[in-house]
Amino acid sequence: MDTKEKIAVIADSATTTGFRLAGVENTFALPRQEEAEGKLSELLSDSSYGIIIVTEALLENCDWRLKKRVEATAKPIVVPIPDSAGPIEQSESLAMLIKRALGLDLSRKK
């Protein structure tokens, strides 16, 4: 793993098992919000990680300072995925952001 960057998953244990089955090495089964937040902030400053996969619920409920940090960093990339309860409506969904920035609703055209 010379120049390659690692992939991490921070989620509940079911999700991490699934991703480990897919071959993702660094999985952290941390169902508790505080622990997960601590791990996320630790991994954000670790340059050996390229992608951090987190559950939507974790990102949605975490501290606003951490959320801001997640938004500001380009690397590692933080990708929210739905957890086993299904996708939740993000408070700042893409469609909303687009509507605010461009002044037109793109999602409704389709």
Binding site: M1, K4, E5, T17, R20, L21, V24, G50, I51, K75
Partner: peptide, 16 residues
């Protein structure tokens, strides 16, 4: 499942 997941070959990582 956990047991199986432990022996899965690792994905080679990504380049960002």
């Amino acid at each position: 499942i956990e047991a199986a997941s432990l022996s899965v070959k690792r994905v080679p990582g990504v380049k960002v």
